[in-house]
Amino acid sequence: MPTIHEVAREAGVSARTVSRVMNDSANVRHDTRIRVRAIAERMEYRPDPSARALKSGRKRVIGIVANAVSSDATARRIEVISKLFNAAGYAALVQFADTSEIEEAAVRDVAPRCDGLIVFTNLRTPASPALDALTASGYPFILVDPPLAVPYPAVRVDRRSGYREAVKYLAHKGRSRFILLIEEFRSSERIAGFREGLAEAKLSFSEEMIVRTGKGFAGGQAAAAGIARRCAAGSADATLCHNDKIALGLLGSLTAAGLRIPEDISLVGFDDDAFSAYVTPPLTTIAQGGGDVGAFIFEQLKNRIEYGTPVESRTFGTGLIQRASA
Rank of each mutant, 00 (worst) to 15 (best):
S100Q: 10
S325I: 02
S188F: 10
A105S: 09
T125G: 03
D31H: 11
A73M: 13
E184Y: 04
I297R: 01
S187T: 09
I62C: 05
V69Y: 08
E207G: 07
E196T: 09
A127D: 13
I286A: 01
L170C: 14
G319M: 04
L240C: 03
A224M: 11
L131Y: 09
E79N: 15
V110W: 14
G197E: 09
A15Q: 14
L267A: 00
L283E: 04
D72N: 15
A53E: 08
A91N: 14
D24C: 07
Y90S: 13
E196L: 06
A233P: 02
P112I: 03
S128V: 05
T309F: 09
A277R: 14
R29S: 10
R29N: 12
I305K: 05
R160I: 08
G258M: 13
S14R: 05
A201E: 03
I210W: 01
R260E: 15
D132W: 05
G162R: 03
V80G: 07
R186N: 06
T280S: 11
I81M: 07
A15F: 04
R76F: 03
E299K: 15
T99G: 02
V18Y: 13
K168S: 07
V61M: 06
T284R: 04
A136W: 00
S82Q: 15
A130V: 03
D244T: 12
T32F: 03
R37F: 10
V80M: 14
G319I: 04
L259D: 01
Q288T: 05
R108V: 07
G220K: 06
G214L: 01
G116D: 07
V279Q: 00
R58V: 09
G174F: 14
I62R: 07
A274V: 11
T315W: 08
E312V: 03
G226Q: 06
P47C: 08
E44A: 13
V157D: 02
L123N: 02
Y169W: 13
F275Q: 08
F141H: 08
G291E: 08
S325H: 04
E312F: 08
S100H: 10
I142M: 07
T125H: 13
A225L: 09
I246T: 01
E41L: 01
G214K: 08
L240I: 07
E103I: 09
R177C: 02
V61A: 13
I102L: 14
N27T: 06
I102G: 06
K215S: 14
I4K: 12
A40L: 05
R33V: 05
G291D: 15
T213R: 10
P282S: 06
M43Q: 00
R175Q: 02
L117K: 11
V157G: 01
I39G: 01
V293Y: 00
V107M: 03
R16C: 02
F296R: 04
A295I: 02
F275E: 11
A88K: 14
R58M: 14
I297E: 01
S266M: 05
G289A: 15
I286Q: 00
G57D: 05
P129T: 06
G116W: 07
F316Y: 10
L283C: 04
A15Y: 08
S187P: 04
L240G: 01
R229S: 11
F85K: 15
R29C: 05
A154D: 06
A130E: 02
L248T: 08
A75P: 05
V211C: 00
N303H: 10
T213H: 07
P281F: 13
I179D: 04
F185T: 12
N122A: 06
G12A: 10
P140L: 12
R113S: 07
G89T: 13
